[in-house]
Design a protein around this nucleic acid. Structure first.
Lengths: 131, 131
DNA sequence: TCCTTAACAGTAATGATTACTTTTATTAAT
DNA sequence: ATTAATAAAAGTAATCATTACTGTTAAGGA
């Protein structure tokens, strides 16, 4: 009987790509990063593995128009630039109050995300997009 | 010269539908709610108006796989049931710390959302989905 | 009334994501 | 080593939410 193969080559590299990147990459970004090294990699494989790993708690998945992934599991917030799309980390040491109040109201809180939106210093610098 | 018609009949009813609902409706839900009353309403019109109103600050748009809208502008958090999809409010009186720290780092914070996920009391009761 | 134009309906197109079908490749037992 | 069993992959098709596009409608001012 075949045993679970937890770590296929592709899965391993997909995880490493997210872990190595500070960009909070999307599935497409991971795919693009790995195409050269793994020419036979398929986008579906990237999606499948990212979601599996998110479900297993190895990665966290960030909300937004397109999903982004983060290998850093320590609780922290994120901010996305509405101008260039960049996603950055913000430290968040203490748990927001609503997490506790949801639990007290009988919810089984599985995860939470604090996502900010705004204009990053770089984009604010070049005062407004010139396209 | 024609003046801005800020409040067309459709736009008016779309706003009211969101305002009247406690469901944090999606565009599709608003469309379904209004079809009977406005048989010629188009889904594109619903999307367009919801986004316009969100941009004008009349509504807030919630993150997630499909966008949900909320006419309550007071700062508060949301929790979505991973089982039934229901979205509920959570009060959040104080601003989370990362909002200030992003501003201090030079971001122009436009908005933020605290979104929780978990299993709602009702779903937890009927221990696990029977489909 | 006639002109201008915002907003509309209807539909086509896009983009992210998921599902499906076939192939590959790893493991375990023979 | 060969084979059988199966998890994971590739490749592709389908779905779903959303956006864009192309006329059409209709309200307000001249």
């Amino acid at each position: 009987m075949a045993t679970l193969r937890r770590y296929s080559r592709q899965r391993e590299r997909i995880y490493q790509a997210v872990h190595a990147s500070r960009e909070h990459p999307s599935a497409q970004m991971v795919y693009d990063l790995l195409r050269e090294e793994l020419p036979r990699l398929s986008l579906g494989t990237v999606y499948r593995n990212l979601h599996q790993m998110a479900q297993e708690g190895m990665l966290q998945e960030l909300e937004g128009p397109t999903a982004r992934f983060d290998a850093c599991l320590a609780p922290h917030a994120h901010i996305r630039c509405t101008c260039c799309g960049r996603v950055m980390d913000l430290s968040a040491l203490e748990e927001p109050a609503p997490v506790r109040s949801a639990a007290e109201a009988g919810w089984q809180v599985e995860r939470y995300s604090l996502m900010l939106e705004g204009i990053c210093p770089a984009c604010a610098g070049k005062d407004h997009n010139e396209f």
